[in-house]
Design a protein around this nucleic acid. Structure first.
Length: 409
RNA sequence: GGAGGGAUAGCGAAGUGGUCAAACGCGGCAGACUGUAAAUCUGUUCCUUCGGGUUCUGUGGUUCAAAUCCACAUCCCUCCA
């Protein structure tokens, strides 16, 4: 199986601009790039697939360039609904640094920032030289722009695709970068770049684009969100435990696809897992393998160990047997609140955000949805006290099957 | 510029003087069953000190009583110019 065949098998190829790129990818002879606008300070699992795709290309020798969109990010790419809020220079810079750190953790890449070759470009050069290569009719027909023609789009965002095309052309010229990879929503931007390269460097210029499919969930909802929002790669924003839990909760219908798409387990290993998954689904071998592989990939062996330890403690049911040290380790990075020594359970639920109102708190208690230090508590008058806390320090509240909250006395 | 239609809870949508904290569907949350899955079933879904309080785009009015009637404002849609 060649690399490209494997990529296809893994469901990672949405489309390619030219079949000729396949052999070059397999031979590991390409320099390629992928870009990200510094609109946030961390990647989340929704972004992850294309980065892992890049890692796979890199693993056979292709050379990755990671492009930070310091310029494009300050413009904002057109999104379906409305204009973007412009970000300040400081925020963009900070975000760029954070993103680069995360990418470096995944694979070695040359870092470039499109601000460097854009900020000195004067308006006349832009219009006289580059502008002539762009046909407005063509630009208007890009999906991203078309979607906004009714509701309106500013000239600023309309110009975004030109800046992106400039990037590809620049990297082609300076680094002999022949390939851009991106999500399928980037197709328009990628082909824009190819167009520009062809116009400037002629038909013999060889450049390509490959897009990775959007990750879909079988039930149609958006991938990458758990309760409380996006699942981030940054452990400060999403703890390794929550990250692990996100993967282990993958529905049966999706889990084999996720293993193929996201993990670096070999084809044979995945087939082995699938056998067990089909024969004994209740063991959830596939979910466990997925959670393990992903947590280790992003948070390392220590993060995985931590996540598994917490999972073990919380789901084995022996919470009250945990020591203070174990709780501290387990709940590191998880939501916790300091409380006074004694507090009615109803208030404790509200303060810890386990319930959004007292009425809801009562309802949870009456439904038997609340466990205090591992035992169900149906008494509305129950008081959480320091004396009953584990090690006189921590009270662990569970609401529902898998929502945990830590109170520190 | 003219003529109509509309705005109701997270979303869709009933309700057109009191029986309305507002049907129903979706979504959310919880419980049961399971495997921390799916499907299914049950409960719940403005706040509350459980007395009550605050809601139906906004403001003012009519009325014992307004989501419901009237006036004005704002926004959206359709048709005509």
């Amino acid at each position: 199986m060649t690399l490209f065949e494997e990529l296809k098998w893994r469901g990672l190829i949405h489309s390619v601009t030219d079949e000729a790129v396949i052999e070059k990818i397999n031979n590991g002879e390409l320099t390629f790039y992928l870009g990200a606008d510094p609109t946030g300070d961390s990647l989340h699992v929704g972004h992850l697939l294309v980065y892992l795709f890049a890692k796979r290309l890199e693993s056979v020798g292709n050379k990755p360039i990671f492009l930070i969109g310091g310029a494009t990010g300050s413009i904002g790419d057109p999104k379906p609904g409305s204009e973007r809020q412009l970000l300040s220079a400081e925020v963009t810079k900070h975000n760029a640094e954070c993103l680069y750190e995360q990418v470096k953790g995944l694979f070695p890449a040359i870092l470039v920032n499109n601000y460097d070759w854009t900020h000195n470009l004067d308006i006349l050069t832009f219009l006289r030289y580059y502008g002539k290569f762009f046909n407005v009719n063509y630009m208007i027909n890009k999906e991203t722009v078309k979607a906004r023609l009714d509701s309106g789009i500013s000239y600023t965002e309309f110009s975004y695709q030109i800046l992106q095309a400039l990037d590809f052309e620049h990297l082609y010229k300076e680094y002999n970068c022949q390939l851009q990879v991106g999500g399928q929503d980037q197709w328009g931007n990628i082909t824009g770049g190819l167009e520009l390269i062809r116009k400037i460097h002629g038909d013999e210029a060889k450049a390509y684009g490959v897009t990775v499919p959007l990750v879909l969930k079988s039930d149609g909802t958006k991938f990458g969100k758990s309760e409380g929002g996006a699942v981030w790669l940054n452990p400060e924003k999403t703890s390794p435990y929550h990250f692990y839990q996100f993967w282990i909760n993958t529905p049966d219908a999706d889990v084999m696809m996720r293993l193929k798409q996201f993990t670096f387990l070999s084809v044979e290993e995945i087939y082995e897992i699938e056998k067990s998954f089909i024969a004994e689904p209740h063991l959830r071998v596939a979910q466990k393998a997925l959670a393990k592989a992903m947590t280790e990939l992003i948070h390392g062996a220590r993060g995985l160990e931590q996540a598994e330890k917490i999972t073990q403690a919380l789901f084995s049911g022996n919470i009250s047997e945990l020591t203070v040290e174990e709780i501290e380790m387990a709940f590191g990075g998880m939501p916790q609140v300091e409380v006074e020594e004694n507090l009615p359970l109803i208030d404790a639920l509200v303060i810890s955000k386990a319930a959004s109102s007292k009425r809801e708190a009562r309802q949870f208690i009456e439904n038997g949805a609340v466990l205090v230090n591992g035992t169900q508590q149906k008494d509305l008058e129950f008081v959480v006290s320091k004396d009953n806390a584990i090690g006189k320090k921590y009270t662990i509240i569970r609401r529902g099957k898998k929502n945990y909250y830590l109170l520190k006395h």
